[in-house]
Design a protein around this nucleic acid. Structure first.
Lengths: 209, 209
DNA sequence: TAGATTGTTAATCGATTAACAATC
DNA sequence: TAGATTGTTAATCGATTAACAATC
């Protein structure tokens, strides 16, 4: 078992991954931590420290092979795998996420949307049907769903999470504006859009209070 | 000018604000840092430290008045103000954000959506019209828009930001999956959904690599 | 007053940066 | 080989936690 890597490091990994993808697009095949630091905005020292949590991917006197490092990061992030996913709550946000191309392009496969609203049940979002939540348990088990995206109102979020976990979900991407509580073997990533917007609001007012 | 408050503290402020709102809903009017720590999951010490960056809102032997603290946090976050807002990019995500109720309920007023796609220009999202980007400059100036939400493809994000800033925008909420560069008087809050999802993916794979 | 709990200082912990020997 | 740049250890910086005097 790897020694615990801090969340601060983990949250930088997708950024490395993305900038390396950009470099590959530009046909840059070799980069030093110093060059990377200039485009990504972290210190060269931090970049080397971060990467060395997972292995020595560089070479003294040379730097890093962009493609190799990109592939290593893909593996570390689990992007070489595929995840069957459902979206709970087929309102505007749920529909938007179902259609989100950056999401579709990677290994996250949206298999269905679920809602309690009879007006939404049955409609198609691109090639996906919105199903009744009644059918969720069976669907999760049969289709081997591992990730659920919660796009319900906040009142339903915890209750939904409990059910999803009971049915076998392993990871939750929570867009409801409240923190959900889960057993420690279940992974949750919270995306709280209000909180994000409030931070922007703070910044706009900072200094002029 | 207030002494610099760290980003770590600022990102916790919306959480205090939200939990205090919940307490008010439950008609709890008084709370100690210890009690708050139990529901919010930060240490009591951290809560007191955080709040004391902005003033001594508590009272020895008593704790904090929930309503007063809530109002103070609203002011600190700038939520007592109103912000005219536009959304650039009227695709699924732009439309979802335009409809997002948590967003509408607070002081952020979406005045219009803009797009280059002639198929989208002219359609109505609830009571809002999607306008041609050609009209954006005039609109921003006339309607006194201070916040722009970027929901364009990543290829257009930097170029869009540059224009928005030229036209007088002060804050950008960026949903395009790339980091935009802005002058230091302009505030940006990045929401990178792919990065968030990748962190969830990492957590699901951690330990089993 | 006695008890409770703050505001704040001091101690600890963790994360970032600097430095440099190892080595390609 | 000489130059470049890593991997890693040590130093610094900043954030969190603990402790406690002040005081309601």
């Amino acid at each position: 078992m790897s020694k615990k890597v801090s969340m601060a490091v983990i949250r930088r990994l997708p950024k490395y991954h993305r900038y390396l993808a950009d470099l590959l697009d530009k046909e840059v095949y070799r980069i030093s931590s110093k060059e990377l630091s200039e485009i990504i905005g972290f210190t060269a020292s931090q970049i080397r420290q971060d990467l060395n949590n997972f292995g020595g991917f560089g070479q003294q006197g040379y730097g890093y092979n962009v493609e190799e490092l990109y592939n290593e990061l893909s593996k570390i992030l689990g992007l070489d795998k595929s995840y069957n996913t459902i979206i709970l709550g087929a309102g505007n946000l749920g529909q938007a996420l179902a259609n989100y191309s950056g999401f579709r392009r990677s290994g996250f496969k949206v298999k269905a949307l679920f809602d309690i609203n009879p007006r939404l049940v049955g409609i198609k979002i691109q090639d996906l049907e919105v199903m009744d939540v009644e059918k969720m348990e069976e669907f999760i088990k049969k289709e081997d769903i591992t990730i659920a995206v919660i796009c319900t109102p906040k009142e339903k979020a915890q209750e939904s999470a409990n059910k999803l976990i009971e049915y076998g979900i392993k990871g939750i991407w929570n867009f409801a504006p409240m923190d959900i509580t889960v057993p420690e073997n279940i992974k949750v990533e919270e995306v709280n859009l209000s909180e994000s917007l409030y931070v922007l609001s703070y910044m706009l007012n900072d200094g002029l209070m």
